[in-house]
Deep mutational scan, measured.
Amino acid sequence: TTKIQIRLADGSRLIQRFNSTHRILDVRNFIVQSRPEFAALDFILVTSFPNKELTDESLTLLEADILNTVLLQQ
């Protein structure tokens, strides 16, 4: 498993454990389930350093190389 910290656009944080085989789409779905107010918003996930937009949501967390990292919601 891996721990992902997500810094949300409103300044708050979410921390969740995922399997390395989960997909970026699963992280997006977790955000929307945790904070339904973001469901209607068009947002992207970005790595904190170096900044990289995670546009291919079909990638696993392992394939995207974002295990144990911080993601930013923009």
Rank of each mutant, 00 (worst) to 15 (best):
T1E: 15
T1R: 05
T1N: 07
T2G: 09
T2H: 10
T2N: 10
K3Q: 09
K3P: 02
K3F: 14
I4M: 10
R7N: 14
R7A: 09
R7G: 00
R7C: 08
R7E: 15
L8K: 04
L8N: 07
A9M: 12
D10Q: 03
D10H: 02
D10G: 05
G11A: 01
G11L: 06
S12I: 00
S12N: 04
S12M: 01
R13I: 15
R13Q: 12
R13G: 09
L14V: 07
L14A: 00
I15A: 09
I15W: 06
I15D: 06
I15V: 12
I15H: 08
I15Q: 06
Q16T: 09
Q16A: 14
Q16E: 04
R17S: 13
R17L: 06
R17G: 08
F18G: 06
S20L: 15
T21C: 08
T21D: 12
T21F: 01
H22V: 10
H22F: 05
R23A: 05
R23K: 15
R23P: 06
R23F: 10
I24G: 02
I24V: 08
I24Q: 02
L25E: 12
L25H: 10
L25C: 14
D26N: 03
D26F: 02
D26T: 01
V27I: 14
V27E: 03
R28Q: 09
R28I: 04
N29K: 07
F30E: 11
I31K: 04
I31L: 02
V32W: 02
Q33T: 07
Q33E: 09
Q33D: 09
Q33Y: 06
S34A: 13
S34F: 06
S34K: 14
S34G: 04
R35V: 01
R35K: 05
R35T: 05
P36N: 10
P36L: 06
P36Y: 02
P36T: 02
E37F: 05
E37L: 07
E37N: 05
E37P: 09
F38R: 03
F38T: 02
A39L: 05
A40P: 08
A40V: 10
A40L: 10
A40R: 11
A40F: 10
L41Y: 10
L41A: 08
L41Q: 13
D42G: 04
D42R: 01
D42K: 03
D42E: 05
D42Y: 01
D42L: 07
F43H: 04
I44A: 07
L45D: 05
L45R: 00
L45M: 05
V46N: 02
V46Q: 01
V46S: 12
V46K: 12
V46D: 00
V46C: 14
T47L: 04
T47N: 14
S48D: 09
S48C: 10
S48L: 13
S48H: 08
S48G: 12
S48R: 14
F49M: 03
F49V: 13
F49T: 13
F49I: 09
F49L: 09
P50C: 01
P50I: 04
P50V: 01
P50E: 15
N51H: 14
N51E: 14
N51G: 10
N51S: 13
N51C: 13
N51W: 13
K52V: 11
K52P: 03
K52W: 00
K52L: 03
K52A: 00
E53C: 07
E53H: 13
E53P: 12
E53N: 05
E53R: 12
E53W: 07
E53M: 12
E53S: 06
L54K: 11
L54E: 02
L54P: 07
L54Q: 11
T55M: 08
T55F: 05
T55Y: 08
T55R: 12
E57S: 09
S58W: 12
L59G: 04
L59Q: 11
L59H: 06
L59E: 13
T60I: 00
T60K: 06
T60V: 04
T60Y: 07
T60P: 03
T60H: 04
L61I: 08
L61H: 09
L61D: 08
L62W: 13
E63S: 06
E63P: 01
A64T: 01
D65M: 01
D65E: 08
I66L: 15
I66H: 09
L67K: 14
L67N: 14
N68P: 10
N68I: 02
N68R: 01
N68Y: 07
T69V: 08
T69S: 13
T69A: 10
V70Q: 13
V70P: 15
V70N: 10
V70H: 09
L71V: 12
L71M: 10
L71S: 13
L71T: 13
L72S: 01
L72K: 07
L72C: 12
Q73D: 09
Q74P: 04
Q74A: 12
Q74R: 15
Q74C: 09
